[in-house]
């Protein structure tokens, strides 16, 4: 099944005579790079929770990851290309995860397996749970499910291969690691009184000043619930979130490009504090007709919540 077929590589612009089909391939450099990269994606041998068991089941005989060139699970991050974040990410664990991510050589990919790794999952409300690994490291593919079945994980891995197939070496937004100079490592979070993202130091400082003055802090003043896709965190990251939203309005393809660029930019600019928030920016879901909402009641609710916290 897993035989090499050169036709996979063919670049359609150059016709190959029938008799040479399968013996000769003419291709572009990008395609060759992508093909090699996606065909030998070595995952990090790295399990967090329940999903890890399904990941092992996927690697075992019945689903057999090796059909995708992924059976070589490396325990060392230095030898792996793909981090399958399989399970609940806790605050205590996110520190090693970011370190592992930093230690992985580029090009590197992250797959968030299951609801917990994608967005906190059923344990999201917990005090020690990170609501999505994408708050700390950029994620390429999300696989929903609790836990995703082995077939769902395989689907996610194929989706990742698709994504790699679509990358272009000419486009630095796609492949930021081929750019000039070494890339910045993702700052490792600190276990303080609560987990601290070094990129948010300024924000924390400002909030601490508010708290010192006895003002409400830590809770966001929310706009009334109008489910339009306004970037909610635009105050924090005007550069990263706002353009994407603006572009989105007129052309979806353009928006997609813009988003990719923003993502790559954010990745690059990780040290400046944009990445995590841009990834996290929880755009309210776009949906059809929405009703007017009682603003006064909502504000009152927020005030009450603050009062009870303070």
């Amino acid at each position: 099944m897993a035989q090499l077929d050169l036709r996979e590589l063919n670049n359609t612009e150059f016709p190959i005579p029938d008799e040479m089909q399968g013996n000769v391939a003419i291709t572009s450099l990008s395609k060759l790079y992508n093909w090699t990269r996606r065909s030998s994606m070595w995952p990090l041998l790295f399990g967090l929770a329940c999903c890890a068991i399904e990941m092992i089941a996927t690697a075992a005989s019945r689903y057999d990851l090796s059909r995708f060139g992924m059976e070589v699970m490396r325990a060392s991050p230095r030898q792996s290309d793909l981090m399958i974040v399989s399970g609940t990410v806790t605050k205590k664990m996110v520190v090693p995860i970011v370190r592992l991510y930093n230690q992985m050589p580029e090009p590197k990919y992250v797959l968030a397996m299951g609801a917990c790794a994608s967005g906190g999952g059923p344990f999201k409300e917990g005090y020690n749970v990170v609501s999505g690994i994408d708050m700390y490291v950029p994620v390429d593919v999300y696989v929903p499910g609790c836990p995703p079945t082995p077939q769902a994980l395989l689907y996610g891995l194929i989706a990742l291969q698709k994504k790699i197939d679509g990358q272009s070496l000419a486009n630095m937004d796609d492949v930021p690691w081929y750019g000039v100079g070494p890339s910045e490592p993702t700052p490792v979070p600190i276990l303080g009184p609560d987990i601290i993202d070094p990129r948010q130091m300024d924000l924390i400082r400002r909030q601490a000043e508010l708290a010192a003055k006895g003002l409400p802090y830590g809770v966001r003043e929310l706009p009334p619930l109008k489910p339009v896709s306004t970037p909610v965190l635009s105050k924090v990251t005007p550069k990263a979130a706002a353009p994407a939203a603006a572009a989105e309005a007129d052309d979806p393809a353009k928006a997609e490009r813009q988003r990719k660029r923003d993502e790559a930019l954010a990745r690059k600019r990780a040290g400046e504090g944009a990445a995590a928030v841009a990834e996290a920016a929880p755009a309210a879901p776009a949906s059809g007709e929405k009703k007017k909402f009682d603003k006064a009641a909502m504000l009152e609710q927020i005030r009450q919540r603050k009062a009870s916290k303070g």
Partner: peptide
């Protein structure tokens, strides 16, 4: 339908009525 991996969770992971 378990085949629902996506590239962006902020937009695709809250399912609305539609």
């Amino acid at each position: 339908d378990y085949e629902m991996a996506s590239y962006d969770r902020t937009r695709h992971h809250i399912h609305d009525k539609q």
